[in-house]
Design a protein around this nucleic acid. Structure first.
Lengths: 141, 141
DNA sequence: ACTCTAATAGAAATTATTTTCGTTTAGCTC
DNA sequence: GAGCTAAACGAAAATAATTTCTATTAGAGT
């Protein structure tokens, strides 16, 4: 169950490029969520020069495909996170706004919300956004 | 229970300015969520000239205070919505991405998530973001 | 290994939002 | 209702993210 980046990338019908591999490698090596800006810095260390839009585009594509997690911080900036137990089922995350660690949540109330949308509103859910921000055990008082 | 904008604004310890009143009036007159840009257009109709930053600032302040709802669309753009039954308890919204209507959801899984964060992770929740996007009954097939 | 083509990368422009800072104003006090 | 002061406003600059369009490259087929 060690991560096989090329296969992951291919499973999204994306080409396996050195930059995609590097982005995954960088994210997987980080303990918490990272800003696109920081990913860009690290990519520049590896490639000397790389377009910022490439970083943004790839982060977006990879998170779209579910290989990495996209976090919309309360400050509205974007962050990305490589979730190591992603093989598991749908789950959400608790994000520590102090140390940037990301912890898994088992509970997902969305099942019930989806049911309510169907029965009460007669609508259908296309997508949802659930993020919980707080202070983790280590950072707490 | 008809909306009393001046009181609402004062309850947030904000000054009751013509622009704030107008922003609330505009939002309350819309059936769905509106973009800051559109609010700005309507404000310009009323005031002739008004700074875009004033619109953004006020929308943010009012949503911060809970008088209006801030919606972060999946496209990451911001929208705002005046929820007419805001006196009620904490609740979330189903947002139709087709017609922009906003419908109330009764269920809030956050209680349980908060419990899980406390017991399993020993952390505390500071804020959360839950938004459900989909297609409402009218817009559905 | 070589060719081909659709997918990807990068530069630059654009859009959306936020911040800064000097000017104006709401609303309290007299 | 005149004066005062903290809050609000507006213009312009800064920041974050996205789009566009041309150049480059991964990887399938040979």
């Amino acid at each position: 169950m060690t991560a096989d980046f090329p296969s992951s990338i291919r499973s999204l019908h994306l080409k396996v490029t050195p930059k995609r591999l590097a982005i995954l490698d960088i994210l997987a090596g980080e303990p918490g969520y990272v800003s696109p800006e920081k990913v860009w810095q690290k990519m520049k260390e590896r490639f000397g020069k790389i377009g910022l839009s490439t970083v943004y585009r790839n982060l977006e594509e990879l998170s779209e495909g579910g290989i990495i997690i996209k976090i919309v911080h309360p400050d509205r900036k974007l962050y990305y996170y490589f979730c190591h137990n992603l093989e598991g089922s749908h789950h959400h995350h608790f994000v520590c706004i102090s140390c940037r660690r990301v912890l898994d949540l088992n509970f997902c109330g969305l099942d019930e919300i989806e049911r309510e949308v169907k029965s009460n509103l007669k609508g259908s859910v296309v997508t949802h956004l659930l993020q919980v921000f707080g202070i983790c055990e280590r950072c707490g008082i």
